[in-house]
Design a protein around this nucleic acid. Structure first.
Lengths: 253, 253
DNA sequence: CGGGCACTTGAAGTCGATCAAAGTGTGTGG
DNA sequence: CCACACACTTTGATCGACTTCAAGTGCCCG
């Protein structure tokens, strides 16, 4: 939890196309918030845009801080979370390349963000981004579309946290990750950049329960665990059934 | 759960100002999505705008339905929820006068909505609303602001569902309701239009636990329960402490 | 006045939490 | 290159908050 300062990149971000908030990684996922927008306005924007590297576990921003910057993740992954005064933590989401961070209602960040592994972000002053949204309606459309999509995801997570069993939660999580990761080769094991504790805090469980539930799913031949941070989903269709919450599946896994 | 069809109002909505998506109630809460926008565009819009009454427990829309309409609540209250295949229910929010419903990502509603009591909504075809957003940037700004605010609320609810105890959940809920209701006179009891089962499905608990927790808070002289659907918050500052999750408070309530 | 629904209360059960300890892997420094 | 330290994970045993099952109470409305 020690502060590792954000260090500016010395050399150009590998794969960067010169387009702010767009990079080859993001383009590959067709996820960057600015991809394909008409470039003229971006020329002025470039002036304000910087890239930053984050060491594993480095904080990007903290809940309650003045929200001076908005970010696009270009490499690595982050956890977004809130803390209760006594230290209980809830991870509200993970961020991967192409994801957009820093939109707030009010001038303060409402979640904290930390790198899960060595990561990179493009950042832009929020004032500049707000101005750009006024100038480029299409940019605002995109931000709205993403925010709405994130709200849908948040509501699904509320169903998970409020009503699903541990087995259903983990199955849902694994399928979420599989959908986001799009493994290079099908049947390649999925790499999970987060620890069991992170998964627990995302699913409203403890590390012990997450670990036991992994073990249980493995015993049922639904998954394999080639390494501590790797999973292979052997029967996605069965996992779907469990994740969606059909009872009967529930009590066993 | 039987289908009570939406019946059109026969007489003009009481208190309606003639401004679509704005009514005296909404203005009083300065919450209507369209209040204060320049009226010219609304003249054409009025053609498509209709008002509807909902009987208590009547469904407004169902998760998965084609999202043909957007709504503003003008009177009463609704519950927004999702169901698991076996019937488990998670209420993701309640809607009160001034609240805007029906924004989706994709063409389908992602939650179901039902009236908690006799209610009224203004509705507008979604296509028309989308067109209006293109024409009136300020309208899109407002929709974005509300969606972002709703996302913040959803994340706070994730913390509640994932990490808070029953006592903390109920305290949080009561303060949420107090903040929304703005009781006419201070120290007037709060009217809760939802049942214990609704509260339970909102907080990820059972009706029994909600009931026991109400009893416990009353025994602690933190609240009074003048009627089944009424609460008076006697010590809001203590409830705040519990709701925010400082441990020590936790084990007693 | 009586049936039905929501709410409350009690007793017993369970899923996941907590407490405890042993494994596993990794990076570092001797 | 090995050994130690540390961080993460797994497994086991026990506990407890909330659920489940089961009555019982109160209240509204026909």
């Amino acid at each position: 939890m020690k502060e590792i300062p954000i260090e500016p990149l010395t050399k150009p971000f590998p794969g960067h196309t010169g387009m702010p908030f767009a990079c080859s990684t993001c383009e590959a996922r067709s996820a960057s918030i600015c991809n394909g927008l008409a470039p003229p306005e971006f020329d002025q924007m470039t002036r304000y845009l910087t890239q930053h590297a984050l060491a594993a576990r480095a904080p990007l921003c903290s809940e309650g801080d003045a929200a001076k910057l908005v970010y696009t993740v270009t490499a690595g992954s982050l956890r977004l979370f809130q803390l209760l005064p006594d230290g209980r933590r809830q991870i509200v989401g993970f961020a991967f390349p192409g994801d957009f961070l820093g939109l707030t209602s009010g001038g303060l960040y409402n979640v904290s963000a930390e790198a899960l592994e060595d990561s990179r972000v493009c950042q832009l002053p929020r004032a500049e981004f707000t101005r750009l949204m006024q100038v480029i309606p299409d940019l605002e459309h995109r931000v709205l579309a993403r925010t709405a999509a994130e709200l849908v995801r948040a509501r699904e997570q509320m169903v998970l946290l409020g009503r699903k069993t541990a087995g259903e939660r983990l199955a849902t999580f694994l399928l979420q990750m599989a959908a986001r990761m799009k493994p290079a080769r099908p049947d390649m094991p999925l790499r999970l950049p987060m620890t069991r504790a992170d998964i627990a805090d995302y699913l409203g469980l403890t590390t012990e329960t997450v670990s036991r539930t992994f073990t249980r799913l493995r015993a049922l031949k639904l998954i394999e665990l080639p390494g501590n941070d790797e999973v292979r989903l052997l029967r996605p269709e069965l996992l779907e059934g469990i994740a969606s919450g059909k009872r009967g599946n529930t009590r066993s896994p």
